[in-house]
Simulated scan of single mutants.
Amino acid sequence: MSEPENTPVRQLDARSLRGLAHPLRMQLLVALRQGGPATASQLAERLGESSGATSYHLRQLAAHGFVADDPERGKGRERWWKAVDEGIRIDETLFKDPDPTVRGAVAVLRYEIANVHTREIATWLGNIGEWGEEWDGATDLSDFSLRLTPELARELVGKMHDLIQSYRPLPEGTPDAETVRVHTHVFPSQTTL
């Protein structure tokens, strides 16, 4: 069963989680979401992988409904792929699933998301000089420490997500508009004095 095109966020169940929880699959999905439709060969070149590996993992992503053929592109045997949704959400019941392979897939997925965020920030910092002065002061690398209960932390996450969703993407061709990545991380931390 495939997801409808352009769904904002997909809720992961145990099956789809297992289909996504692989480092290369995560990289492929991120590349398609951020870079738009591409062929397995183009993605292989971009990610430093073999086209055989990217083809295989794209087919696995398609089997789980994360990517789909883009029939408007390509000619002949050239197969183009596109992302089906804009993001994912993990069903909270999976964090404590009795199946250790499901909990392992959750762990892999979380680590890969953290790796993606780290690479994106490092890339931005490495290229910060390429952005014009108008972006000075329009970016943020803040961190905060709060004392919260789990309920208040859930409320904070919900409010942050609602705020982010209230900023709709501007149409292509809008002057000065760029894709802006927003990462959120809320987690408990041991304090040491």
Results as ranks from 00 to 15, higher is better:
residue 5 E to I: 11
residue 6 N to S: 11
residue 6 N to H: 09
residue 8 P to T: 10
residue 11 Q to V: 10
residue 14 A to Y: 03
residue 15 R to L: 12
residue 17 L to D: 08
residue 18 R to F: 01
residue 18 R to M: 13
residue 21 A to M: 04
residue 22 H to K: 07
residue 26 M to Q: 09
residue 27 Q to F: 00
residue 27 Q to D: 15
residue 29 L to I: 01
residue 29 L to G: 02
residue 31 A to D: 03
residue 32 L to F: 04
residue 33 R to Q: 14
residue 33 R to T: 02
residue 34 Q to M: 06
residue 35 G to E: 07
residue 36 G to D: 02
residue 38 A to E: 09
residue 38 A to I: 07
residue 38 A to G: 11
residue 40 A to L: 02
residue 41 S to W: 04
residue 42 Q to V: 10
residue 42 Q to L: 12
residue 42 Q to F: 01
residue 43 L to K: 03
residue 43 L to Q: 06
residue 47 L to D: 04
residue 47 L to A: 02
residue 48 G to A: 06
residue 49 E to I: 00
residue 51 S to G: 01
residue 56 Y to M: 09
residue 61 L to T: 00
residue 62 A to T: 00
residue 63 A to W: 03
residue 63 A to H: 11
residue 69 D to K: 07
residue 72 E to F: 01
residue 72 E to N: 08
residue 75 K to I: 08
residue 78 E to W: 01
residue 79 R to N: 01
residue 80 W to Q: 02
residue 81 W to G: 01
residue 82 K to Q: 14
residue 82 K to P: 00
residue 83 A to W: 03
residue 84 V to H: 03
residue 84 V to M: 14
residue 91 D to H: 12
residue 92 E to K: 13
residue 92 E to S: 14
residue 96 K to P: 00
residue 96 K to E: 12
residue 98 P to W: 05
residue 99 D to R: 13
residue 102 V to D: 05
residue 102 V to F: 07
residue 103 R to A: 08
residue 103 R to Q: 14
residue 104 G to I: 00
residue 104 G to Q: 14
residue 106 V to R: 06
residue 109 L to F: 13
residue 112 E to H: 06
residue 112 E to F: 09
residue 112 E to M: 13
residue 114 A to N: 11
residue 116 V to S: 05
residue 116 V to E: 08
residue 117 H to K: 10
residue 118 T to L: 12
residue 119 R to A: 14
residue 120 E to M: 13
residue 121 I to A: 14
residue 127 N to F: 00
residue 129 G to T: 11
residue 130 E to V: 06
residue 132 G to E: 14
residue 133 E to G: 10
residue 134 E to N: 05
residue 136 D to K: 14
residue 137 G to P: 10
residue 141 L to H: 09
residue 144 F to C: 06
residue 144 F to S: 10
residue 146 L to D: 05
residue 150 P to V: 12
residue 151 E to W: 06
residue 155 E to M: 05
residue 156 L to S: 04
residue 163 L to Q: 07
residue 163 L to I: 03
residue 164 I to F: 10
residue 164 I to S: 06
residue 165 Q to I: 00
residue 165 Q to L: 07
residue 165 Q to T: 06
residue 170 L to P: 03
residue 171 P to E: 15
residue 171 P to S: 13
residue 172 E to N: 04
residue 175 P to R: 09
residue 179 T to W: 08
residue 181 R to F: 09
residue 185 H to E: 13
residue 186 V to R: 02
residue 186 V to T: 12
residue 189 S to C: 02
residue 190 Q to C: 01
residue 192 T to W: 11
